[in-house]
């Protein structure tokens, strides 16, 4: 669905058209739920948050000025709600910080290319801390630009670029560790 179509739906939702919110739900439910549940890892709570996001859209559509893309607006609502959950529950986040001497050379690329399958990479993705994982998910699953991701996560654009850069380094480090362990066996 093109941005113009999404904006038209939002306009109709603002006018109280229930079939428009249903159409928007059908289009956006899957990616939003995925984004929420990756962070919360709680299907029921994620379903609640998803419901809240659509209710916010229902209530706030009339005031939507179209300064952001609809998708960006909805993801930012979801992001704020998830952060609220983290704050209320004081959830701990696992740090994936690593020393900066990660090998960034072409040999590291060869490691990843030589992986028999993507299983190792998936495991490494799961090990990223939420900020890095969000950036990777939004950039590579949702194919969003750094400006959109920065808007959703309310951080400067440069921070998003840096997060993905570091996430990539951490993934390489993790992969190399797993490959080396495999060789040692």
């Amino acid at each position: 669905m093109k941005e113009a179509d999404l904006k038209s739906l939002i306009h109709r939702i603002g006018a109280g058209e229930k079939n428009a919110i249903e159409a928007l739900y059908r289009h956006m439910e899957q990616p939003l739920y995925r984004f929420i549940n990756i962070k919360l890892n709680d299907p029921f709570l994620s379903a609640d948050i998803l419901q809240d996001v659509f209710l916010d859209v229902w209530k706030g559509a009339a005031a939507f000025e179209g300064r952001s893309a609809v998708k960006t607006w909805m993801f930012s609502i979801a992001y704020r709600k998830v952060i609220d959950v983290f704050r209320k529950n004081a959830r701990l986040t696992i740090s994936d910080d690593l020393p900066e001497q990660v090998d960034d050379a072409p040999s590291a690329v060869a490691h990843i290319a030589a992986a028999e399958d993507a299983a190792h990479l998936r495991i490494c993705l799961d090990g990223l801390k939420p900020d890095h994982r969000d950036a990777i998910e939004l950039a590579f699953y949702e194919d969003m630009g750094y400006r959109e991701i920065a808007e959703i996560t309310a951080v400067p654009e440069g921070t998003i670029k840096t997060r993905i850069f570091h996430a990539k380094k951490l993934l390489l480090h993790c992969l190399q560790g797993r490959m080396n362990a495999k060789v040692a066996l």
Binding site: Q30, A47, L50, L121, F140
Partner: peptide, 20 residues
């Protein structure tokens, strides 16, 4: 390659029609 791997992750079972 990282992007392809992220995209290949299995879809989550969302609330779907029940959520609607």
């Amino acid at each position: 390659l990282i992007r392809a791997t992220v995209k290949e992750q299995p879809e989550m079972q969302s609330p779907g029609e029940l959520g609607l």
